[in-house]
């Protein structure tokens, strides 16, 4: 049995993945010391001056960065809520459709946007939501004033959230449908015998059986509370809506990459990473405690 005990092949098999992890995950983590420096590209990480927590102080003093953090929170929380609520209801309603072919076709259509990138969807939305675009022509046809969905601070967040729900709600329905498929039919049969109608069955069997997975999905979403969706915002926003639509990730891109404030950009990124990590750890703990969920 000595052969089985030998583990060197295991280490060899892990080597390529570990090299990639080291280069592209752990090496950048070392770069977070830049958050405590006044980083100058020509001086490098070794040569740039230390500034302690100045970058972080600056982060909390700057008007625009506080606005950006607030925008991120608002957009992310709204997305989390609606991307939980709508799939929850949609799964229950879809489950009531008995014709398998019809159910399949509906699923096929609602999952589709999930697989397309925000570049494609952004291109489509910019076209459709323009002042003379498809949507505004429909609004005009029913006698409403045109809305500048992507250029008006009063409408931008709404547009972002609705379009995110459009992209993701179908896909988010999958886990709920899986939970519904797991409900034992005998429960419904027993309820039927006792004279419960479908509404009662839904309230007392279907919904309670979806609670555990809802808790899991909801708690795990906590980790995304500072993730308002870079790809989407970047492809939809423009300087007109920075006030309500600029989020941490797009702000980092502009200040650090375009304006060259590398140290400051790293500090905001670190701020976000640390909070996200703490939330992810807490949420996994909670999901395990409340619903017995584990990933590994």
């Amino acid at each position: 049995m000595k052969r089985i005990k030998k583990t060197w092949p295991f280490h060899v098999m892990l080597l390529p993945a570990l090299i990639c992890l080291f280069l592209f995950s752990y090496l950048p983590m070392g770069g977070i010391i830049m958050a405590f420096q006044d980083y100058k590209p020509w001086e490098g990480v070794g040569g740039s001056a230390w500034v302690g927590l100045d970058n972080f102080r600056y982060l909390f003093e700057r008007q625009d960065s506080m606005q950006v953090i607030w925008n991120t929170l608002v957009i992310a929380v709204m997305k989390i809520v609606f991307n939980l609520l709508i799939p929850f209801v949609f799964a229950i309603l879809l489950n009531e459709i008995r014709k398998t072919a019809l159910q399949r076709s509906i699923q096929t259509m609602v999952y589709l946007p999930h697989f397309l990138s925000w570049v494609i969807l952004g291109g489509i939305l910019i076209e459709m939501l323009a002042v003379d675009g498809f949507v505004n022509r429909i609004l005009a046809a029913v006698g409403l004033d045109p809305v500048f969905f992507l250029g008006d601070n009063n409408w931008f967040r709404f547009t972002v959230i609705v379009s995110d729900v459009w992209k993701e709600f179908g896909y988010n329905t999958i886990v709920f449908l899986a939970a519904l498929a797991g409900v034992s039919p005998t429960l419904y049969e027993a309820a039927e015998m006792d004279g419960a109608n479908r509404l009662k069955q839904t309230l007392h069997i279907t919904i309670p059986s979806m609670i555990p997975i809802t808790i899991v999905v909801g708690t795990l979403a906590l980790g995304n509370i500072l993730n308002a969706g870079f790809d989407q915002i970047f492809n939809l926003y423009n300087p007109l809506v920075y006030e309500k639509g600029d989020i941490i990730d797009t702000f980092v891109y502009r200040t650090a990459i375009l304006n060259g404030e590398m140290g400051f950009g790293t500090a905001i990124g670190l701020f976000k990473s640390v909070i996200s990590m703490a939330l992810i750890l807490v949420s996994y703990r909670l999901a395990y405690k409340w619903a017995g969920y584990r990933i590994f």
Partner: peptide, 26 residues
């Protein structure tokens, strides 16, 4: 035996990252 160390390396890379700027520098 070393599996748990390795799996932590993988999982940690999923929950924490250095952010955009350090990644760019690397």
């Amino acid at each position: 035996r070393s599996r748990s160390i390795y799996s932590w390396l993988f999982v940690f890379s999923m929950v924490f990252n250095g952010g955009l700027v350090p990644f760019y520098i690397v």
